[in-house]
């Protein structure tokens, strides 16, 4: 058995080393080195395009109107894969909610953390509780910034949603959360489903060309369709077509989905410690 595991480790390590040898040099595309020189033509530029990343780097900014090439690949060229990832997260949340559904059947009520309306929670240090509670709006603002500027600067739906969900984890640490776990779950699952539904609806809105077609890009500036200058530019919020909308939908879905997971697991620890199952750390 040890021999088999050793052989499999060597096998996988060999594959990874071969993959490392084929990686790009840092900051350079794989195929044509002077791919940036020709960027900015008005038609699809196929000169000296060797690989797909040459195509993305040369035509992505013009075709999608997005400064962030990564966002244009994730939400536009490979939008169907992003739909798959969002669906995987949705199914995970469904499975965990199904496992934790006994929290809502038995008359489980989280015990009160507060002595009075102006008091702090009993079981945690006041510095930790207040500090986490004050950090929460800052983290949420940073996550919203990441989601809304996903097509201009690094960030996007998944990253912003994960950062906002870490704000939920801070709120759990501070113990200043609501006791009504069922009401929280109903509201959060509604918004999570709304995010995924908006994503699929935006995909079907451009169905005349193809699924998830970016039908708003390079159109009217009123509807996110501003044509941006090529190369370095200050960045415009009303560019990139349906990319910011898809990013917002994914951000809402990721934030509420991961928040449901965290809140249910936290309530499960409270439930288990009351039943004598868990141990205090």
């Amino acid at each position: 058995m040890r021999l088999i595991s050793l052989l499999s480790v060597v096998f996988i390590a060999g594959f990874l080393l071969v993959a490392v040898m084929r990686l790009h040099p840092v900051g350079e595309p794989l195929g044509n080195r002077d791919v940036f020189r020709f960027r900015g033509d008005t038609v699809t530029d196929m000169r000296n395009v060797d690989t797909m990343d040459d195509y993305f780097l040369r035509n992505g900014q013009r075709e999608t109107g997005s400064n962030n090439i990564v966002a244009s690949v994730v939400f536009d060229y490979r939008g169907f894969d992003t739909l798959g990832e969002a669906t995987v997260l949705f199914i995970v949340v469904c499975a965990i909610s199904m496992l934790m559904s006994f929290l809502y059947n038995q008359n489980y009520v989280m015990e009160a953390n507060f002595r009075g309306p102006d008091e702090f929670p009993r079981n945690v240090s006041r510095i930790i509780s207040f500090g986490s509670f004050m950090l929460f709006p800052l983290i949420i603002s940073f996550g919203i910034y990441l989601v809304l500027h996903g097509h201009i600067s690094p960030g996007g739906g998944f990253q912003g949603g994960a950062v906002m969900a870490s704000g939920t984890a801070l709120l759990l640490i501070s113990l200043l959360i609501t006791r009504h776990v069922q009401r929280t779950k109903v509201i959060f699952s509604f918004f999570e489903s709304l995010g995924l539904t908006v994503f699929i609806s935006l995909g079907f809105a451009g169905i005349t060309a193809s699924f998830l077609y970016n039908f708003l890009a390079n159109g009217s500036p009123l509807f996110l369709g501003r044509t941006i200058p090529f190369g370095p530019n200050p960045g415009f919020l009303n560019s990139a077509g349906i990319l910011p909308l898809l990013s917002l939908a994914v951000g809402v879905e990721v934030f509420f989905g991961i928040s449901i997971i965290l809140i249910q697991l936290y309530h499960f620890t409270r439930y288990a410690s009351r039943a004598g199952g868990g141990r205090d750390i």
Partner: peptide
């Protein structure tokens, strides 16, 4: 966060 919850459980 999830690992800490799992260790606690």
């Amino acid at each position: 966060c999830i690992f800490v919850i799992a260790v606690k459980l």
